[in-house]
């Protein structure tokens, strides 16, 4: 059972990493002048869209999402709506936090919001897929004894890696190197994506390594 879940996780993560890769490469073929630095925002949205699409598809196929009690169409629709609202709220939340961390208030609001969208699609979206629109559950998951399945642990690791990556990404900004990737928010979004990719690799590895010690309560 362990091996099966880990294998599923590895393949899922491989698909996601591939989608990030494709989101970087494919538009460059079709769109002239597309590059990570030059047209940063379009790259950013392309990655967000790819990750969002792939995550939703994969997790839906895997069926990890918490079982819904009702199967009526109305309930599912309201659930979907709530997910969308949460997604949007999370964007605003991240935007706000990034502002507090010292992002320019007005001048590059669009860039800041785009970063928030990226962070949301890398972190919140996963929470939505794995846990559903349930903030209580989200908070619970991020505690030491809160993980209830392999996927929860994996969620912990990827989200932490993404956020730490974005945080670390802010460090080069004040340096006076005059590099293209020091422009706001390039380094942060790069940091987030790199952190996300690291998390994708680290999570199955860590779980595999600690599989003897991991015990989960049944739901």
């Amino acid at each position: 059972m362990w091996d099966r879940e880990i294998r599923a996780m590895v393949s899922t993560h491989a698909i996601m990493a591939a989608s990030v890769f494709m989101a970087t490469v494919v538009p460059a073929v079709f769109l002239p002048g597309f590059s990570v630095y030059g047209t940063h925002l379009s790259w950013l949205y392309s990655v967000s869209a790819a990750v969002t699409g792939v995550s939703v598809a994969v997790f839906w196929l895997l069926g990890i999402a918490p079982p819904t009690k009702k199967h009526s169409l109305g309930y599912k629709l309201s659930r979907l709506c709530r997910c969308c609202v949460y997604f949007f709220l999370s964007c605003i939340f991240f935007h706000f936090v990034v502002l507090l961390y010292g992002a320019p208030l007005v001048e590059s609001a669009l860039e800041t919001f785009s970063l928030a969208v990226l962070l949301t699609s890398l972190t919140t979206l996963r929470c939505l897929c794995v846990l559903g629109p349930n903030v209580q559950a989200w908070i619970r998951v991020f505690s030491r004894h809160g993980a209830m399945s392999v996927w929860d642990t994996c969620l912990q690791i990827t989200v932490a890696c993404t956020l730490v990556g974005a945080w670390v990404g802010a460090f080069p900004i004040p340096l006076d190197w005059d590099r293209p990737w020091q422009v706001w928010p390039v380094s942060c979004s790069l940091g987030a994506v790199i952190g996300f990719l690291t998390g994708l690799v680290a999570a199955p590895a860590w779980i595999h390594h600690h599989r003897k010690h991991l015990t989960y309560k049944s739901k």
Partner: peptide
Amino acid sequence: VTFLLLSLVLYVPVRLNWEGLLL
């Protein structure tokens, strides 16, 4: 300094939650 202080302050509730003490 503000950045670092903010990070350290945000770390506090995160840590507490991780310890399962926040809720």
